[in-house]
Each structure stands twice: as C-alpha cells, then as structure tokens.
C-alpha cells in the first residue's frame, strides 16, 4: 500500500556565498550554429581581497551546534549549458572555500537557471561569436537558480559538512549569456 503521509522534510540554513564573475573570469563560446552551446570558463583563482565571500547572512556564529562557515571563495570553475529550445540553463561546477581559519572546503554542484518568460533576455545575442563591446551594452538580467551540492574537506572542524546533502537557492546575473555575479544560500537537507 502506497504511503498517504509525507516523510519528514527539513532544510537547515548553513551559509551564503557571493561570486563576482565579471573581472576574474575568462570564457569561451562555441560558434553559433551548434546544437548545444556551452560556456565553459577558465578556472578563476580569486584574489584574497575579492568580493567572493562566504558568510552567514544572519550573522550567527554557529549552525546547529557546529561552527558557522565564513571566509572566501578561493577558486571557482563553472559551466552553463543552454539546452536548445528550452527556457532554462544547466549549471555545474566546483568551488573551493577558504575559511577564516584557513581550512579548505570544496563544493561540487549541479543545478539550473530558470527565468521563465524572461529567458529570451538571458540568452539574448548569445550567438557564439559576439562582439565584446556590443555585449557590454546589453543589460544585465537576473535569474533564479537552484543547485544541489556536496562538500569535501579534510578539516576535522568542518568534517560535519561532508555528511550533509545540500541544496542552494540563489540568483545569477548574466549579460549576453555570460554570468557576471552569483549569490547563493546553502542549506542542508535534514
């Protein structure tokens, strides 16, 4: 007999991060005409004073009895696929967090960008071989994004993260199909 009740579902907020994808990012576009246009990026090694921060949005020092995660995004590498004929993008990537106490935590994630009726604006003029100056004149478009992620670290202090399946809710800004900024809230599924 199938269930007639929902299983328990909870999400525990862990931390947030912001990524400035404009300055330190190099990107490659495939030429227009290919069925699946992919936008890989070179790995971005973020400088220590960058805007790529990791923080607790509510300024709490602990999360469920564990130390809150604060610091910087030290490394980010991402890819966006734009499935032809669809109104969403698929994201995947890795980023490395360096906490304030110098621990390194790597996140591997996949997810989606969704903008529904605004999707044509997201991919506007994303024809593959675009004029950089013309692209700069396009307005930024902000989309909702959702991802799932898990973490790896050898730090004993943050080992608890490794045991969590996590999800993220965020916003990504793009100009001419190129992401310029991203921000996410990360939750543990519990």
């Amino acid at each position: 007999m199938n269930r007639s009740h929902f299983l328990s579902r909870q999400m525990q907020y862990l931390f947030s991060f912001d990524l400035d994808l404009g300055a330190s990012r190099a990107s490659t576009r495939k030429a227009a005409g290919l069925a699946n246009q992919i936008l890989p990026s070179d790995a971005a090694l973020c400088p220590a004073d960058s805007k790529n921060v990791v923080y607790h949005a509510l300024d709490e020092a602990q999360v469920g009895g564990e130390p809150a995660i604060t610091g910087q995004v030290a490394f980010a590498q991402d890819k966006i696929d734009f499935p032809p004929g669809r109104d969403f993008g698929e994201i995947s990537g890795r980023l490395v967090i360096r906490t304030r106490d110098k621990a390194l935590i790597e996140s591997t994630y996949t997810g989606v960008l969704r903008a529904r009726a605004f999707w044509p604006l997201v991919v506007r003029d994303y024809g593959g071989v675009a004029d950089a100056q013309a692209n700069a004149d396009l307005p930024e478009v902000e989309t909702k994004a959702q991802l799932t992620t898990h973490f790896e670290t050898g730090s004993a202090k943050y080992r608890w993260l490794v045991e969590r399946q996590c999800a993220g809710f965020g916003r990504v800004r793009l100009r001419g199909g190129e992401p310029t900024w991203a921000s996410f809230d990360i939750y543990s599924l519990a």
């Binding site: 912001d18 400035d20 529904r116 307005p139």
Partner: peptide, 15 residues
C-alpha cells in the same frame, strides 16, 4: 523569475 538591472547595485553582503 527575473528582473532587468539597468544599473547594477553596489554589491554588499546580504543580510
């Protein structure tokens, strides 16, 4: 789901 940002705001940490 989306909004145009003609003048991107100065990015500060969210609260």
């Amino acid at each position: 789901s989306a909004a145009l940002a003609v003048q991107p705001p100065v990015q500060t940490r969210r609260t």
